[in-house]
Computed example of a mutant assay.
Amino acid sequence: MGIRELKTFVAVAERGSLSAGAEARFISLPAVSAQIASLEAEWGISLFDRTRKPARLTNEGLALLAKAREVLGLYDQIGDAIREPDDLTGSLVLGSIPTALTSVIPKALLSLRELHPRLQIRVHHGLSPSFAEMLRNGEIDAAIISEPRVQLPNLRWEPFAREPILVIAPREAKGRTDEALLKAYPYIRFNRHFWVSHVIEEALAKRRIVLRETMELDSLEAIALMVAHGLGVSIIPVSHTSFLRLHRVKAVPLGRPPLSRTIGLAERVGNPKGRLTAALLDALNRAAAKIAKTST
């Protein structure tokens, strides 16, 4: 058993199939099958229950997955220990909510590439609740999520930016206040499963604003496009004013004082890749500061 086989096993286990694992590892499907078979033969166990479709990890497979992640985390730290202090290498799997993908992440990744060219970061997009579960399961190393509504067990969250929550409307809309716009047009809801949607719903409920909902979408770009075409208004977090100019929509703050949300970097307590996530958080803070400066 070697590091190569463990990396392949973890890739297959996390992605749910041999073919997906092969794609992640950039090797052929027969090579993946051979490496999994080698692990099973060495330990005399079955790692996957192949009678089920798709195949699922056995109890032995789950136990090996937990230990394999520990071993690979320690393996990544070896390079850090023998290289110069400022020379970071290794890999990070990062989850991100949509707004960060079009604001802080590109700037932060570019900065990290210049400072640490051997550091590899793979980015996935999704919802804050999903990322919290993936962090606990060790499927990702860190995630950019909105501020948790409750304390997340065994996870640490560090804020680095605030995003205003705005009512967006067609550019020609005549209403000047958030309430006037919300009452004048049909409402396009931002996915109710996003944590920020709960904050929005609570703010509207306190003011007893009744909406005429016509759509529910989870893409900020799709929502902005619908609004720009005059199909309704929406309430969304906006990371940068360029988003409003690009989609040709008008915006007013939601509430007084204006509502906003805080986003930050979450990771497991005792993360073995803490040195890498610390560098990422530093880059995110710098990127957020630059964006805030250009937005004022």
Rank of each mutant, 00 (worst) to 15 (best):
Asn271Ala: 11
Ser146Gln: 06
Leu29Pro: 00
His240Cys: 07
Ala266Gln: 04
Ile105Gln: 07
Ala63Thr: 10
Ala224His: 01
Ala66Met: 13
Ala205Arg: 10
Glu14Arg: 05
Gly126Leu: 03
Arg256Lys: 03
Leu276Glu: 08
Glu221Met: 10
Ala289Gly: 11
Leu72Ile: 11
Leu220Ile: 08
Met1Tyr: 06
Thr99Gly: 03
His193Ile: 07
Tyr75Gly: 04
Glu201Asn: 05
Ala184Lys: 09
Ala224Leu: 14
Met1Ile: 09
Ile27Ser: 05
Glu201Asp: 15
Asn285Lys: 13
Phe190His: 13
Glu267Gln: 10
Glu5Gln: 14
Asp141Val: 02
Ala142Leu: 09
Ile36Val: 10
Tyr187His: 13
Ser19Leu: 08
Ile121Arg: 01
Arg286Lys: 12
Ile140Ala: 08
Leu284Asn: 08
Leu29Asn: 00
Leu246Arg: 04
Ala11Phe: 10
Ile236Thr: 05
Ile200His: 10
Pro117Met: 00
Ile121Gln: 03
Glu70Cys: 07
Val71Glu: 15
Val227Ser: 09
Ser128His: 00
Ala108Cys: 02
Arg4His: 13
Met226His: 11
Ser239Gly: 14
Ser91Thr: 13
Asp49Thr: 02
Gly2Leu: 08
Ser219Tyr: 05
Gly61Leu: 12
Glu114Gly: 03
Lys67Pro: 11
Arg245Glu: 14
Leu254Ser: 03
Ala68Asn: 13
Val196Ala: 05
Ala37Tyr: 05
Val150Ser: 07
